[in-house]
Design a protein around this nucleic acid. Structure first.
Lengths: 343, 343
DNA sequence: TTGTAAGCGTTATCAA
DNA sequence: TTGATAACGCTTACAA
């Protein structure tokens, strides 16, 4: 049975209030009192009981990060960043995975863990605007990526249309004309719709047609799904000289199949993704990608959440910040040694 | 202000104890009482306060998983498995990352989060046997991978020597003679030492010499480190026809550099790893690897931890279970179409 | 600057 | 089968 604050107080010959003050950084305390407390704490090996504190305070110092799955590089890397940033605020992160399942997303927001956390950072996959009423009921919430809930919670957004536009423009600039849009297609998440819209705008600006045959759905945004869809497109005899994977996983799956089929990347088909995961750097050839500023996303998300937790009553609207993005050109679009033919 | 158990009790016209019984699956209850409680719960939207329960029970229903970093595929995939298995036991997982830093490993075991958890699953990187006294002081603990603490906690082990032996034997069977051991070398974790030992045993059995030049240290077990060390070995003019990366990340880093330098895999150099991460399946060429039975590891770890939490006083020694492993042959050692020349 | 005492929302003891 | 009541260990008015 571990020592309690009462034990410390008794040994230090002060009241529990004073010991509590000590642990809460209350400044007005005689140096000698402080020293006595410190000695007692050492002697007893005392550690503050966080559960009791939480019960009394009504807050836990924990936030959850709700993502589809950890074994996708993007989410694993995001989780690591969020954990690190949260730690600088003294917050502990509970990582919840949902497999993109609607019920599990709702459960993460309003289930048993609900009262274990002071707020949540949520990367929704299945939930849509019609679920808005169930969005945690007063739980401080920051939504990542999706803009469907704007006005209902704080958001950290990716400029989906612009990112897609830039990616497709890059492919056009290196001379590609028939670009497979991998991850678009019905029904499609809101993110998918926006990235498709941006892609088609870039094609239109370049005076290129949008070929419905080259707008391809995938069953999820994983390497498996990207590989399968690309294989199908090749088997169908569709012709394309570039692939825009709506995330890195899709692009890597596509690239894998292309190489497997003996096609040259980027010689025959150029490939570009989105996310700048570590996997992109270590693909062979290395994958050109749009970096969404993951570190910035994690930082802003935690900051927004912390201020929402501290001042829940700021009813004058919710914040939406959009992260910066950047084109990272690698070998999957511009072969090394090739002089970039960009005008 | 959310409803409490008292509110429910009042509305259902029973005592709080009865409501508590209801939530704890106490079987002796009249159907009508149960129905009244259920109606009151619904009406009030009542949810059990986990913090209060934890305070009263002295346990939280949370366990932590302590790993070096989530953005390594192996750990991300392991975390996902552990979270899923733990959920079947009604346990919540707190994922702690340490960067393999000694202080952070100790902090995860005995810091503030210590009392937030009922036990921990720990994949140590920096801590050694000399830290044993600090191993959580009575915290139920299951250690993964490392056998250095055997006798001090429960273990779920990988058969490091046998795994390495099998990997090297496979390379020998396909005719390789000069095998780079990537990840061995001083100082080296205990795991590294065992895998090196197993590798050298396999070489010895095959009548092959152990060339010190081919035993290569890396700065961590990441793709970056694997790439850097392999590049160095090539630059030094060391000759080898195979690489055994002590994990998939190292092997993938090596493979990446080899391809970058224009060498053929497996034509010039065969590559094999350990872990069977998803990355291995999507490398190009696909990476041959030793599967350590990750699902089994996660399941056994959680099971051991749960029984240790339930019966902390089983002082008659600690359990050590060793996971099964399996060789997964892919294209990085046996090119597709090549008839396997194994005797 | 420090002390007293009343909760926070459960669960456990014991009795009925 | 259910009820009254005392903890669990901390924070926080309020008092001194």
């Amino acid at each position: 049975m571990p020592a309690t604050m009462h034990d410390v107080a008794a040994l230090a010959r002060v009241s529990v209030k004073t010991v509590s003050n000590y642990f809460n950084g209350y400044p007005y305390m005689r140096a000698e009192t402080r020293a006595r407390i410190e000695r007692a704490v050492d002697e007893l090996g005392y550690r503050l009981n966080v559960t009791a504190r939480s019960l009394r305070r009504g807050s836990t110092g924990m936030i959850s990060l709700i993502v589809p799955e950890l074994d996708q590089a993007y989410f694993a890397e995001l989780a690591q960043e969020v954990i690190d940033v949260a730690a600088t605020f003294g917050l502990t992160v509970l990582v919840e995975t949902t497999s993109g399942d609607r019920d599990r997303e709702l459960e993460a927001l309003s289930g048993l863990h609900r009262q274990l956390i002071d707020g949540a950072i949520f990367d929704p996959l299945a939930l849509g605007p019609s679920d808005a009423p169930q969005l945690g009921g007063g739980l401080p919430l920051v939504i990542l990526g999706e803009r469907q809930f704007e006005g209902l919670a704080d958001h950290v957004l990716i400029a989906d249309e612009e990112v897609a536009h830039r990616a497709v423009s890059h492919l056009v600039e290196i001379g590609r004309r028939r670009i497979l849009l991998l991850g678009a297609g019905s029904p499609g998440t809101h993110t998918a719709i926006l990235r498709r819209r941006g892609s088609e705008a870039a094609l239109a600006e370049a005076g290129l047609p949008v070929d419905g045959d080259l707008v391809v759905s995938t069953d999820g945004w994983t390497r498996d799904a990207g590989a399968a869809a690309t294989a199908r497109a090749l088997d169908d005899g569709r012709r394309f000289d570039a692939v825009f994977g709506f995330n890195d996983a899709l692009a890597l799956g596509a690239q894998w199949v292309l190489l497997e089929r003996g096609l040259a990347v980027p010689g025959d088909v150029a490939v570009i993704g989105v996310d700048d995961t570590r996997d992109a750097r270590f693909a062979h050839p290395t994958l050109t990608t749009m970096s969404p500023g993951r570190a910035q996303i994690a930082r802003r998300a935690v900051e927004l959440l912390v201020s929402r937790i501290r001042e829940p009553e700021t009813e004058n609207g919710f914040a939406s910040v959009t992260a910066d993005f950047e084109l990272i050109v690698r070998d999957s679009t511009v072969a090394p040694g090739t002089l970039n033919s960009t005008p």
